[in-house]
Design a protein around this nucleic acid. Structure first.
Lengths: 170, 170
DNA sequence: CAGTATCCGGTCTGATACTG
DNA sequence: CAGTATCAGACCGGATACTG
Protein backbone atom coordinates (compact mmCIF):
# COMPACT_ATOMS: atom_id res chain seq x y z
CA UNK A 1 0.00 0.00 0.00
CA UNK A 2 2.92 2.30 0.78
CA UNK A 3 5.76 1.07 -1.35
CA UNK A 4 8.62 2.20 0.83
CA UNK A 5 7.98 2.66 4.48
CA UNK A 6 9.35 2.24 7.93
CA UNK A 7 7.32 0.24 10.36
CA UNK A 8 7.13 1.01 14.04
CA UNK A 9 5.10 -0.55 16.80
CA UNK A 10 3.94 1.54 19.69
CA UNK A 11 3.65 -1.26 22.17
CA UNK A 12 5.44 -4.56 22.12
CA UNK A 13 3.99 -7.73 23.49
CA UNK A 14 4.22 -8.91 26.18
CA UNK A 15 3.74 -5.70 28.15
CA UNK A 16 5.80 -5.39 31.31
CA UNK A 17 5.32 -3.70 34.63
CA UNK A 18 8.04 -1.36 33.43
CA UNK A 19 6.77 0.39 30.30
CA UNK A 20 8.24 -1.00 27.13
CA UNK A 21 8.10 1.81 24.59
CA UNK A 22 11.41 1.31 22.82
CA UNK A 23 13.99 4.00 23.54
CA UNK A 24 14.75 6.36 20.68
CA UNK A 25 16.54 9.68 20.56
CA UNK A 26 14.29 11.35 18.01
CA UNK A 27 10.79 10.94 16.68
CA UNK A 28 10.28 9.10 13.38
CA UNK A 29 8.70 12.19 11.80
CA UNK A 30 10.56 15.50 12.14
CA UNK A 31 8.59 18.13 14.02
CA UNK A 32 8.42 20.56 11.12
CA UNK A 33 6.69 18.00 8.92
CA UNK A 34 4.42 16.45 11.54
CA UNK A 35 0.75 17.27 11.27
CA UNK A 36 0.27 16.40 14.92
CA UNK A 37 2.56 19.31 15.71
CA UNK A 38 0.52 21.58 13.43
CA UNK A 39 -2.64 20.45 15.17
CA UNK A 40 -1.08 21.17 18.56
CA UNK A 41 -0.15 24.64 17.33
CA UNK A 42 -3.84 25.31 16.71
CA UNK A 43 -5.66 23.58 19.55
CA UNK A 44 -2.89 23.08 22.10
CA UNK A 45 -4.01 25.87 24.34
CA UNK A 46 -6.13 25.82 27.47
CA UNK A 47 -8.63 28.53 26.54
CA UNK A 48 -8.89 27.28 22.98
CA UNK A 49 -9.77 23.79 24.16
CA UNK A 50 -12.27 25.08 26.69
CA UNK A 51 -13.95 27.19 24.01
CA UNK A 52 -14.13 24.22 21.68
CA UNK A 53 -15.65 22.13 24.47
CA UNK A 54 -18.38 24.71 25.01
CA UNK A 55 -18.92 25.06 21.27
CA UNK A 56 -19.41 21.31 20.95
CA UNK A 57 -22.03 21.53 23.67
CA UNK A 58 -23.92 24.11 21.61
CA UNK A 59 -22.67 27.48 22.81
CA UNK A 60 -22.33 30.04 20.05
CA UNK A 61 -22.37 33.54 21.50
CA UNK A 62 -19.66 35.71 22.96
CA UNK A 63 -21.27 36.35 26.31
CA UNK A 64 -22.29 32.71 26.74
CA UNK A 65 -18.67 31.64 26.36
CA UNK A 66 -17.57 34.44 28.61
CA UNK A 67 -20.05 33.61 31.37
CA UNK A 68 -19.45 29.87 31.29
CA UNK A 69 -15.68 30.00 31.20
CA UNK A 70 -14.99 33.23 33.09
CA UNK A 71 -12.45 33.98 30.41
CA UNK A 72 -11.23 37.59 30.15
CA UNK A 73 -13.05 39.27 27.28
CA UNK A 74 -9.85 40.27 25.58
CA UNK A 75 -8.58 36.71 25.63
CA UNK A 76 -11.90 35.34 24.39
CA UNK A 77 -11.96 37.84 21.58
CA UNK A 78 -8.49 36.79 20.47
CA UNK A 79 -9.16 33.07 20.65
CA UNK A 80 -12.42 33.32 18.72
CA UNK A 81 -10.62 35.27 16.02
CA UNK A 82 -7.82 32.72 15.85
CA UNK A 83 -10.25 29.80 15.71
CA UNK A 84 -12.21 31.53 12.97
CA UNK A 85 -9.09 32.22 10.94
CA UNK A 86 -7.95 28.65 11.42
CA UNK A 87 -11.27 27.48 9.99
CA UNK A 88 -12.69 25.72 13.06
CA UNK A 89 -15.38 28.30 13.70
CA UNK A 90 -17.49 30.29 11.30
CA UNK A 91 -18.64 33.77 12.34
CA UNK A 92 -22.23 34.14 11.20
CA UNK A 93 -25.10 36.47 11.96
CA UNK A 94 -28.38 35.59 13.54
CA UNK A 95 -31.31 37.94 13.27
CA UNK A 96 -34.19 38.06 15.70
CA UNK A 97 -36.92 40.10 14.02
CA UNK A 98 -37.12 43.64 15.26
CA UNK A 99 -33.56 43.53 16.53
CA UNK A 100 -30.35 44.09 14.72
CA UNK A 101 -28.28 41.05 13.77
CA UNK A 102 -25.83 39.55 16.24
CA UNK A 103 -22.80 37.42 15.48
CA UNK A 104 -22.46 33.84 16.51
CA UNK A 105 -19.64 31.37 16.20
CA UNK A 106 -20.63 28.06 14.66
CA UNK A 107 -18.43 25.01 14.39
CA UNK A 108 -17.37 24.18 10.86
CA UNK A 109 -17.02 20.56 9.74
CA UNK A 110 -13.33 20.93 10.55
CA UNK A 111 -14.21 21.98 14.08
CA UNK A 112 -16.83 19.31 14.51
CA UNK A 113 -14.28 16.73 13.46
CA UNK A 114 -12.59 17.31 16.81
CA UNK A 115 -15.62 15.98 18.62
CA UNK A 116 -14.45 12.36 18.98
CA UNK A 117 -11.09 13.60 20.20
CA UNK A 118 -12.55 15.79 22.92
CA UNK A 119 -14.98 13.07 23.92
CA UNK A 120 -12.06 10.66 24.18
CA UNK A 121 -10.25 13.17 26.35
CA UNK A 122 -13.34 13.37 28.52
CA UNK A 123 -13.39 9.61 28.92
CA UNK A 124 -9.69 9.72 29.77
CA UNK A 125 -10.53 12.27 32.45
CA UNK A 126 -13.37 10.13 33.73
CA UNK A 127 -11.05 7.14 33.98
CA UNK A 128 -8.00 8.79 35.53
CA UNK A 129 -9.03 12.05 37.14
CA UNK A 130 -12.64 11.60 38.14
CA UNK A 131 -13.84 11.26 41.68
CA UNK A 132 -17.01 9.26 41.79
CA UNK A 133 -19.09 8.22 38.81
CA UNK A 134 -18.66 9.96 35.49
CA UNK A 135 -21.14 12.86 35.19
CA UNK A 136 -21.68 12.04 31.53
CA UNK A 137 -21.84 8.86 29.52
CA UNK A 138 -21.90 8.19 25.82
CA UNK A 139 -24.52 5.76 24.60
CA UNK A 140 -25.83 4.52 21.32
CA UNK A 141 -29.12 6.09 20.27
CA UNK A 142 -30.55 2.81 19.07
CA UNK A 143 -29.32 0.19 21.52
CA UNK A 144 -28.69 2.53 24.48
CA UNK A 145 -25.54 0.56 25.22
CA UNK A 146 -22.30 2.28 26.25
CA UNK A 147 -19.95 3.62 23.62
CA UNK A 148 -16.26 4.41 23.80
CA UNK A 149 -13.52 5.73 21.57
CA UNK A 150 -11.16 3.31 19.97
CA UNK A 151 -9.38 2.32 16.82
CA UNK A 152 -11.54 1.00 14.04
CA UNK A 153 -10.57 -0.78 10.84
CA UNK A 154 -12.07 -0.43 7.35
CA UNK A 155 -14.76 -2.99 8.03
CA UNK A 156 -15.98 -1.11 11.11
CA UNK A 157 -14.49 -3.43 13.67
CA UNK A 158 -12.60 -2.36 16.78
CA UNK A 159 -8.83 -2.84 16.81
CA UNK A 160 -6.81 -3.01 20.03
CA UNK A 161 -4.03 -0.47 20.51
CA UNK A 162 -1.55 -3.34 20.70
CA UNK A 163 -2.52 -4.30 17.19
CA UNK A 164 -1.86 -0.88 15.69
CA UNK A 165 1.28 -0.21 13.72
CA UNK A 166 2.69 3.03 12.34
CA UNK A 167 3.85 3.17 8.75
CA UNK A 168 6.07 6.11 7.91
CA UNK A 169 6.65 7.21 4.34
CA UNK A 170 10.27 7.81 3.53
CA UNK B 1 -28.99 1.88 33.17
CA UNK B 2 -28.88 5.41 34.59
CA UNK B 3 -32.13 5.82 36.43
CA UNK B 4 -32.48 9.57 36.11
CA UNK B 5 -30.71 11.24 33.28
CA UNK B 6 -30.90 13.96 30.71
CA UNK B 7 -30.44 12.98 27.11
CA UNK B 8 -28.73 15.15 24.55
CA UNK B 9 -27.77 14.50 20.95
CA UNK B 10 -24.66 16.03 19.51
CA UNK B 11 -25.80 16.06 15.93
CA UNK B 12 -29.36 16.01 14.69
CA UNK B 13 -30.44 14.42 11.48
CA UNK B 14 -30.59 15.57 8.79
CA UNK B 15 -27.37 17.58 8.81
CA UNK B 16 -27.50 20.91 7.02
CA UNK B 17 -25.02 23.06 5.20
CA UNK B 18 -25.38 25.38 8.16
CA UNK B 19 -24.22 23.52 11.24
CA UNK B 20 -27.04 22.25 13.37
CA UNK B 21 -25.68 21.87 16.86
CA UNK B 22 -28.64 23.09 18.91
CA UNK B 23 -28.12 26.48 20.53
CA UNK B 24 -27.70 26.46 24.28
CA UNK B 25 -26.47 29.07 26.71
CA UNK B 26 -24.58 26.73 29.01
CA UNK B 27 -23.02 23.31 28.85
CA UNK B 28 -24.93 20.36 30.28
CA UNK B 29 -22.17 19.66 32.80
CA UNK B 30 -20.85 22.56 34.89
CA UNK B 31 -17.18 23.28 34.30
CA UNK B 32 -16.14 22.57 37.87
CA UNK B 33 -17.50 19.03 37.71
CA UNK B 34 -16.44 18.20 34.16
CA UNK B 35 -13.60 15.74 33.80
CA UNK B 36 -12.88 17.06 30.33
CA UNK B 37 -12.03 20.36 31.95
CA UNK B 38 -9.75 18.59 34.42
CA UNK B 39 -8.07 16.80 31.54
CA UNK B 40 -7.58 20.11 29.74
CA UNK B 41 -6.03 21.55 32.88
CA UNK B 42 -3.38 18.83 32.70
CA UNK B 43 -2.67 18.38 29.01
CA UNK B 44 -4.09 21.58 27.51
CA UNK B 45 -0.74 23.18 26.98
CA UNK B 46 1.45 23.36 23.90
CA UNK B 47 4.74 22.20 25.43
CA UNK B 48 3.02 19.49 27.44
CA UNK B 49 1.40 18.05 24.35
CA UNK B 50 4.63 18.20 22.37
CA UNK B 51 6.47 16.40 25.18
CA UNK B 52 3.79 13.72 25.30
CA UNK B 53 4.04 13.31 21.54
CA UNK B 54 7.77 12.73 21.77
CA UNK B 55 7.34 10.42 24.74
CA UNK B 56 4.86 8.32 22.80
CA UNK B 57 7.44 8.02 20.05
CA UNK B 58 9.92 6.61 22.56
CA UNK B 59 11.88 9.60 23.83
CA UNK B 60 12.75 9.40 27.50
CA UNK B 61 15.68 11.66 28.27
CA UNK B 62 15.91 15.32 29.09
CA UNK B 63 18.31 16.29 26.35
CA UNK B 64 16.48 14.26 23.72
CA UNK B 65 13.30 16.19 24.44
CA UNK B 66 15.22 19.42 24.52
CA UNK B 67 16.97 18.82 21.19
CA UNK B 68 13.90 17.61 19.38
CA UNK B 69 11.56 20.33 20.57
CA UNK B 70 13.95 23.25 21.07
CA UNK B 71 12.15 23.88 24.31
CA UNK B 72 13.84 26.13 26.87
CA UNK B 73 15.45 23.96 29.52
CA UNK B 74 13.65 25.70 32.35
CA UNK B 75 10.31 25.11 30.68
CA UNK B 76 11.13 21.48 29.96
CA UNK B 77 12.18 20.93 33.53
CA UNK B 78 8.92 22.37 34.79
CA UNK B 79 6.72 20.42 32.41
CA UNK B 80 8.43 17.12 33.15
CA UNK B 81 7.94 17.73 36.85
CA UNK B 82 4.27 18.57 36.36
CA UNK B 83 3.67 15.53 34.17
CA UNK B 84 5.40 13.33 36.72
CA UNK B 85 3.35 14.74 39.57
CA UNK B 86 0.17 14.33 37.55
CA UNK B 87 1.04 10.66 37.08
CA UNK B 88 1.54 10.61 33.30
CA UNK B 89 5.31 10.11 33.48
CA UNK B 90 7.42 8.11 35.87
CA UNK B 91 10.92 9.34 36.65
CA UNK B 92 13.19 6.32 36.74
CA UNK B 93 16.91 5.71 36.65
CA UNK B 94 18.84 3.86 34.02
CA UNK B 95 22.36 2.64 34.71
CA UNK B 96 24.94 1.99 32.06
CA UNK B 97 27.70 0.01 33.78
CA UNK B 98 30.71 2.08 34.61
CA UNK B 99 28.70 5.27 34.54
CA UNK B 100 26.54 6.87 37.13
CA UNK B 101 22.77 6.46 36.84
CA UNK B 102 20.77 8.90 34.74
CA UNK B 103 17.09 9.71 35.02
CA UNK B 104 14.59 8.97 32.34
CA UNK B 105 10.93 9.77 32.01
CA UNK B 106 8.75 6.81 31.11
CA UNK B 107 5.08 6.94 30.27
CA UNK B 108 2.81 5.39 32.87
CA UNK B 109 -0.33 3.50 31.86
CA UNK B 110 -2.19 6.76 32.43
CA UNK B 111 0.12 8.52 30.01
CA UNK B 112 -0.02 5.75 27.46
CA UNK B 113 -3.79 5.92 27.57
CA UNK B 114 -3.50 9.23 25.74
CA UNK B 115 -2.04 7.49 22.73
CA UNK B 116 -5.29 7.03 20.78
CA UNK B 117 -6.19 10.64 21.45
CA UNK B 118 -2.91 12.02 20.12
CA UNK B 119 -3.02 9.69 17.15
CA UNK B 120 -6.53 10.88 16.40
CA UNK B 121 -5.32 14.45 16.61
CA UNK B 122 -2.58 13.54 14.16
CA UNK B 123 -5.16 12.14 11.76
CA UNK B 124 -7.18 15.32 12.17
CA UNK B 125 -4.08 17.28 11.26
CA UNK B 126 -3.45 15.03 8.28
CA UNK B 127 -7.01 15.58 7.08
CA UNK B 128 -7.32 19.34 7.62
CA UNK B 129 -3.86 20.84 7.89
CA UNK B 130 -1.60 18.61 5.85
CA UNK B 131 -0.09 19.55 2.54
CA UNK B 132 0.52 16.48 0.47
CA UNK B 133 0.21 12.91 1.63
CA UNK B 134 0.25 12.12 5.32
CA UNK B 135 3.80 11.37 6.47
CA UNK B 136 2.50 8.65 8.75
CA UNK B 137 -0.31 6.13 8.60
CA UNK B 138 -1.83 3.84 11.16
CA UNK B 139 -2.35 0.25 10.07
CA UNK B 140 -3.38 -2.98 11.61
CA UNK B 141 -0.48 -5.30 12.38
CA UNK B 142 -2.30 -8.33 11.11
CA UNK B 143 -4.28 -7.19 8.08
CA UNK B 144 -2.13 -4.13 7.22
CA UNK B 145 -5.33 -2.24 6.49
CA UNK B 146 -5.81 1.39 7.56
CA UNK B 147 -7.08 2.22 11.05
CA UNK B 148 -8.75 5.30 12.44
CA UNK B 149 -10.31 6.51 15.66
CA UNK B 150 -14.03 6.29 16.15
CA UNK B 151 -16.84 5.32 18.45
CA UNK B 152 -17.14 1.66 19.29
CA UNK B 153 -19.93 -0.20 21.05
CA UNK B 154 -19.72 -3.08 23.53
CA UNK B 155 -19.56 -5.69 20.83
CA UNK B 156 -16.57 -4.04 19.17
CA UNK B 157 -18.45 -2.54 16.27
CA UNK B 158 -18.05 1.01 14.99
CA UNK B 159 -20.85 3.50 15.72
CA UNK B 160 -21.35 6.67 13.67
CA UNK B 161 -21.12 10.01 15.49
CA UNK B 162 -24.71 10.70 14.46
CA UNK B 163 -25.78 7.67 16.44
CA UNK B 164 -24.12 8.72 19.67
CA UNK B 165 -26.10 10.22 22.51
CA UNK B 166 -24.94 11.79 25.74
CA UNK B 167 -26.55 10.73 29.00
CA UNK B 168 -26.02 13.12 31.87
CA UNK B 169 -26.56 12.06 35.46
CA UNK B 170 -28.57 14.49 37.46
C1' DC C 1 -24.94 42.13 23.57
C1' DA C 2 -20.41 42.05 21.45
C1' DG C 3 -16.86 43.65 21.50
C1' DT C 4 -12.39 47.10 21.90
C1' DA C 5 -9.44 50.03 25.13
C1' DT C 6 -6.61 50.43 28.98
C1' DC C 7 -3.99 49.28 32.96
C1' DC C 8 -1.41 46.60 36.14
C1' DG C 9 0.74 42.87 38.58
C1' DG C 10 2.07 38.26 37.78
C1' DT C 11 3.51 34.23 35.36
C1' DC C 12 5.51 32.21 31.27
C1' DT C 13 8.91 32.36 27.66
C1' DG C 14 13.21 32.27 25.48
C1' DA C 15 18.13 33.03 25.69
C1' DT C 16 22.31 32.43 27.92
C1' DA C 17 25.17 30.85 31.30
C1' DC C 18 26.74 27.91 34.96
C1' DT C 19 27.27 23.35 37.81
C1' DG C 20 27.63 18.34 39.52
C1' DC D 1 23.85 14.85 30.58
C1' DA D 2 20.50 16.92 33.52
C1' DG D 3 19.49 20.18 35.33
C1' DT D 4 19.43 25.23 38.12
C1' DA D 5 20.28 30.47 37.84
C1' DT D 6 19.30 34.61 35.91
C1' DC D 7 17.00 38.05 33.32
C1' DA D 8 14.44 40.94 29.85
C1' DG D 9 10.35 40.82 27.49
C1' DA D 10 5.98 38.84 26.06
C1' DC D 11 1.69 37.34 27.34
C1' DC D 12 -2.01 36.52 30.68
C1' DG D 13 -5.63 37.35 34.19
C1' DG D 14 -8.59 40.36 36.30
C1' DA D 15 -10.82 44.69 36.63
C1' DT D 16 -12.99 48.49 34.74
C1' DA D 17 -14.67 51.33 31.38
C1' DC D 18 -16.39 52.73 26.94
C1' DT D 19 -18.96 52.14 22.27
C1' DG D 20 -22.27 50.70 18.47
Amino acid sequence: MWPDFLVLDFFDEPRQAVRMTPLTHRSPVPIDRCNLVKAIDIVGDRWTLLILRSALFGLRRFDDFQRELSVPRTVLSGRLKALTEAGLLDKQSYKVEGRRPRPEYILTPQGEALQPILMALMQWGDAWLGDGPAPMNLTQKTSRGPVELGFVDETGRAVGADNVRIAIKR
